[in-house]
Design a protein around this nucleic acid. Structure first.
Lengths: 346, 346
DNA sequence: CTGAAAGCGCTAACAT
DNA sequence: ATGTTAGCGCTTTCAG
């Protein structure tokens, strides 16, 4: 009687044990039956599944995980989910993982290495089957190494801490930079600035190096004033363009670390009575969906977020099965998308 | 010897047990020491913590959860993380929860009730301490009820399935609608359309009802053609405005279910050679950060995503401690933000 | 095809 | 202040 009430009131408490007792079989049989194992008789399976449904049985993954050392969770660490670039990556990851029966455990750390270490330490305790991380700007490889040492596969996405020997799925920063610069060069621009990125992170470093090399190749002088450091925010772009327009010989175009910076630049131009594409050429990076919607549309370098997310999932799941695999670097070639924000140099 | 290698190679395998043995104390003591319990001697605590760090011990939350029936995870279910509205809510939730030692388990379902049920069923198996959900368009309360019945606290956010008797944190749809309409009315508009929303979801239903009521109050005729049904996407807005402009007596303004729709309307206007704010007035809803950046800026009704996220967390955590609390509805008053997309009627 | 038994790693009574 | 013991709910040999 009191049992019946228990069952009614807190069906969350139904366990394999109870089903087994009710049916007069063992928990082992119930466990197999619920997973439709061929080891168990058709009729038994049916009886078990029917009763389980009736009692409102809910599989307890904590218990299963303890036993199997598999959680079917993948931890995802990004800086900021509001940034559409990360949003798009996260969405692709979530969808891909859901398709293979995995669930996303989310952590964010706003490009703060200290916060990142705290967040990753917590995520690690949940023993996810793997982690997909975009390292915070300026973070060292220690946190990542310690997780990898604990036997959790890690895939770095977008950015990369070099030398930790972990898988990477990223865009080709050098190619992205050169494509953007070539496009501007073809349009006749010669005084070209680069906005955003820091030398504390692979993406920024690589692009800044690529920028210098490209300028030298073209026989153009590198003006340090035209290399504006900053995180990937609209604010960075807004401020940068004010600074650039005030230079003695202002640039006629700029390439940006990401689209958000480029949006900031376009706003900043408008603030000064100029228009992107008419008075100044702007190239973004990422091609977030908003890029197509600006007026003028943003010319940008597509970084294939969705594919990156998908590939990162594949990689982390493969490693789940075979942890001894050597680390690979999957570099996705970027592509130029020309819209209205760039035009012939004056 | 082989033990030492084990420890080196897979420190992930270090357990309380091992630390206890190495130190010649019991696992209970180690457990307490690691949590800095006052029950354990200062010196012991120190020894334990030092060794734990040295061995690379990682707390196993699956094991702890099995024992304590607490996971410190909160499941968050939204339709789409790329939508900045949900992105902002998710970011607020993640940050608030991290502050109280909880981690987000993420699920998305693209406004698909079937997918939602599948996702929620999975999330439930992880036994999160609570769930914060924005129900999919057209979903019934069954999935939610079954989770609540399993003893997991649920807070509905933004949208609400009525009659399930669960906590809600949402914006005041009626007030939001009236604020927007009043603003347009003050500007002299009389033929005002409403774009987006469906009667399958509380938010849409409430707004459409509020719209009809308001029109009647003002003695204005309700043209069914001027009430365009649709999900909250840019595409909905783009199509809707084409339709509206083709009506015999086209409206001079519209209110939108959300900002994305409003962006779509503004694009659609441009597509027809018109400009929002000059030829047609548009009011959005939500005030996502992009709204301020359009040219013209979008006049919109702020729905306070960040506060909603925060309040939802508070509520779910309270319920964690005291599950018997009666369900509450926390309704956050919306506020109008006037920018350039609205102007005097012609 | 099914059952018995052990144990994953942790915590909480209870005992000392 | 520390140890002993039991057990959370599940899966997995191993027997039968």
């Amino acid at each position: 009687m009191s049992d019946a009430i228990e069952t009614q009131v807190r069906p969350g408490r139904v366990t394999l044990q109870q089903i087994a007792e009710d049916l007069g079989v063992s928990t082992a049989t119930v466990s197999l039956a619920l997973r439709s194992s061929p080891l168990v008789a058709e009729a038994t399976r049916e009886r078990v599944q029917v009763l389980a449904r009736k009692l409102g049985y809910v599989y307890n993954r904590s218990a299963a995980s303890l036993r199997t050392a598999r959680t079917h969770m993948v931890a995802v660490g990004v800086n900021d989910v509001v940034n559409p670039y990360f949003g798009e990556i996260l969405a692709a990851i979530e969808e891909t993982l859901a398709g293979s029966g995995h669930t996303v455990l989310l952590g964010t750390y706003s490009d703060d290495p200290v916060k990142q270490d705290r967040v990753l330490a917590t995520l690690k305790e949940y023993r996810p089957d793997g982690m997909i991380l975009c390292p915070a700007n300026g973070s060292s490889g220690e946190a990542l190494s310690s997780i990898a040492a604990a036997g959790i596969p890690i895939v770095q996405i977008t950015r990369e801490i070099e030398g930790v020997g972990l898988d990477v799925v990223a865009s080709d920063d050098v190619a992205a930079t050169r494509i953007a610069l070539d496009h501007l060069h073809d349009l006749g621009h010669r005084r070209i600035a680069i906005v955003g990125g820091t030398d504390e992170m692979s993406t920024g470093r690589n692009r800044r190096i690529a920028y210098r090399a490209w300028m030298r190749e073209k026989g153009l002088a590198v003006d340090p004033q035209a290399m504006v450091v900053g995180l990937g925010t609209r604010d960075t772009g807004f401020r940068a363009i004010q600074h650039l327009l005030d230079l003695a010989a202002p640039p006629t175009a700029c390439i940006c670390m990401n689209d958000l910076i480029a949006f900031g630049v376009m706003m900043g131009l408008r603030h000064r009575g100029r228009e992107a594409g008419r008075d100044f050429s702007v190239v973004g990076a990422d091609d977030v969906s908003e890029a197509a919607l600006w007026a003028p549309g943003l010319t940008t370098v597509k970084n294939h977020q969705t594919e990156m997310g998908r590939r990162a999932c594949e990689r982390v799941l493969v490693r789940t099965v075979n942890p001894a695999l050597p680390a690979t670097r999957i570099i996705i070639p970027p592509t130029l998308v020309v819209r209205g924000s760039t035009s012939r140099a004056p």
